[in-house]
Design a binder for these strands. Sequence first.
DNA 1: AAGACGGGGGG
DNA 2: CCCCCAGTCTT
Length: 350
Amino acid sequence: MSATDARAAPGAFQSALLSWYDRHARVLPWRVPPGSEERADPYRVWLSEVMLQQTVVKAAIPYFEAFTMRWPTVENLAAAPDEDILAAWAGLGYYARARNLIACARTVAEMGGFPDTEEGLRALPGLGPYTSASIAAIAFGRPATVVDGNIERVMARLFMVETPLPAAKPDLRAAADLLTPRERPGDYAQALMDLGAVICRPKAPTCLTCPVADFCEARGNAPERLPRKQPKQAKPVRHGLAYWAESRGKLLIVRRPPKGLLGGMAALPASDFTDSPPRLGDGAPFTAKWHRTGRTIDHVFTHFRLRLEIVKAKTSLANGPGEWVPLDRLEEAGLPTLFRKAVKTMLAAR
DNA sequence: AAGACGGGGGG
DNA sequence: CCCCCAGTCTT
């Protein structure tokens, strides 16, 4: 009944996992089939892995399809205007990723291609330990140790690591490192990620169909409670004002400052987001008689909740601190979800 | 070492 | 409604 220690028999563990992957690999638009002779395109691997940072596969797929349709190569992407790329990223979140994506594409185009080692990749903007290892393994066949949240969960259960995250990270990485094969490292990394996503799920893992259950110490020991995590703190509520400035059927859209929250993104003019409600006019794009609309948007960011009140004014301005976008073309403005919600609410009220 | 940084899906 | 998920960069 006791589990076989995978660290003592890494070859057996790898074989069990890879043969499962050969039969059950998820079909994803950036993948080549398991055991394929052809290697995956580094551009597509990079783009998908950056999109998958902090993001579930299902959310990333339509963005990946749109990006690769529009920009089939890293050179195409590097040549595109910032605003086009940011607009295409709108709704996917963590916009620093998009800013780094742009910088990375231009660096790579300049270099004449992606570096083919983990160290070389790690030096590029937006590529940390996870992404550089995954590209090195998947696109270049390097035996890099790939550790994402899925793999941390699998390791914590395989070896019954009771230490809570993030303190357990070094141990989980060491375990993953011992199991990483020299052969088929890309398939192996993707197999581990598929296992975490499909079998060794956060809640209700399906151990009955797990190809490596024989190696798992947590099997039958409530695996769903692992990995343990430090309790998270409650999100404070912040308040903000957004300004609906309408002129002859057009709405004023501004560009947010390049860094910070929603940095570089198209937006409605807005106040800072503060602990207590801002004064009417704080952050307004111009002086006007701003009226409360009674419409508010509740939106959750990573570390706070936002209550955004929308105020409006009619104007006849034809220029201003932004761009006037026709009301029926706001879908193309590249607004992130917060402001997309605001637009939807305001247009529904008409 | 800790905080900043989105959004979607499930119970 | 609250819960969960989860890499990189900055400070």
